[in-house]
């Protein structure tokens, strides 16, 4: 009995041993698969700061985590456009002092001064993404140009969509010629009918890694974020990536500091580090979203302009979200 106790307490001591981090820590909450682990590890080594890294897979989950944790739990978060706006309204963010970020000048001006935070007081662009349709041309020979081309019977159980109600219902609205941010009940209903019709072709909803479905040949068509599609294309060059003709969503994720963050100094160090040209390039090399810095530009200028002009941001729709909720439960 005593021996067991000793063994167990030894085990506890071993487990509890913490590495010494001279310069404290920083609590980062980021999207799952967004920053390669090596980059975090190198930051820790370079600055001797421990990074506590948590992940989330939707803006709503982020909001939930921030509001259900006590103040000062997290330092840096990466909310998308509409969530920045909402968090500003809810007074959850801390103004960013750009003077403390040496690499600020590396940020591509095209991405600054967006509607959700016109003077970039609370947010700085991190990565952008658009929804695209990815099609495995090995299997699907038809010419697919937009959402309304997805109804064919032969695509039964052959499509993966994002597990995101705003994107999926937004896509159904765009397919019907409405705005992605429509709140009118009748228009929403026609979106719902559109989705119910498409349902037989949908194999799965997945936000975290729809590319896996394409790579493992589980499906041949997917509506996903561009980076996922590009990675899938690296595995299978015959995957075609299409900007849907009815319109597509654009999302801009941002660096933001949480109000009452405890490790402000380290947070600036972390942001500055991520904006450094060599580090930044590594991120978009591994996860090929749209790079928002000058040094790491990975779309040609015209495509970038097109994406920024034609892409629609998901907007905050307040209480109308309840109607989206219900449609979502009905589709599933």
């Amino acid at each position: 009995m005593k021996k067991i106790m000793i063994i167990i307490s030894l085990m506890l001591i071993l487990c509890g041993c913490e590495k010494n981090n001279l310069n404290g820590e920083v609590n980062v909450l980021n999207w799952s698969s967004y920053i390669p682990y090596e980059i975090i590890n190198e930051f820790e080594k370079e600055y001797n700061i421990k990074v506590n890294y948590g992940t989330y897979s939707s803006n709503e989950e982020l909001l939930a985590k921030i509001s259900s944790s006590s103040p000062g739990t997290y330092d840096i978060i990466f909310p998308s456009d509409y969530m920045v706006e909402l968090m500003i309204q809810k007074d959850m963010l801390m103004p960013i002092d750009k003077n403390r970020i040496k690499n600020y000048s590396n940020i591509n001006k095209l991405f600054l001064r967006q509607k959700f935070d016109p003077n970039n007081i609370y947010s700085l662009p991190f990565l952008a993404a658009t929804t695209v349709i990815a099609v495995n041309k090995d299997k699907v020979l038809d010419d697919i140009r937009g959402y309304n081309d997805l109804f064919k019977d032969k695509y039964k159980n052959n499509i993966v969509l994002l597990d995101d109600q705003r994107i999926v219902i937004g896509m159904s609205l765009q397919a019907n010629g409405y705005s992605m941010n429509e709140v009118d009940k009748n228009k929403l209903n026609s979106g719902k009918d559109w989705l119910l019709k498409l349902n037989k072709n949908i194999k799965a909803f997945d936000s975290d890694s729809p590319k896996t479905f394409l790579i493992t040949n589980e499906v041949d068509i997917g509506v996903m974020w561009n980076a996922e599609a590009i990675i899938a294309k690296e595995y299978n060059p015959n995957i075609e990536i299409i900007y849907p003709k009815e319109g597509f969503a654009i999302s801009l994720d941002n660096y933001s500091l949480v109000k009452n963050a405890k490790n402000v100094e380290n947070s600036y160090k972390f942001i500055n580090y991520l904006l450094r040209s060599d580090v930044n390039k590594k991120i978009t090399d591994e996860y090929p979203y749209i790079n928002t810095t000058y040094s790491g530009m990975n779309l040609d200028y015209n495509e970038l302009l097109m994406v920024l002009n034609q892409g629609t941001y998901v907007e905050n729709i307040g209480n109308n979200i309840a109607n989206y909720d219900k449609i979502w439960a009905e589709i599933k």
Partner: peptide
């Protein structure tokens, strides 16, 4: 919470990726 990643959480965030 943050910094308290346990195996199930780590795997949950990876399982689909």
């Amino acid at each position: 919470g943050p910094g308290s990643n346990t195996l199930p959480l780590y795997i949950y965030s990876m399982i689909k990726t």
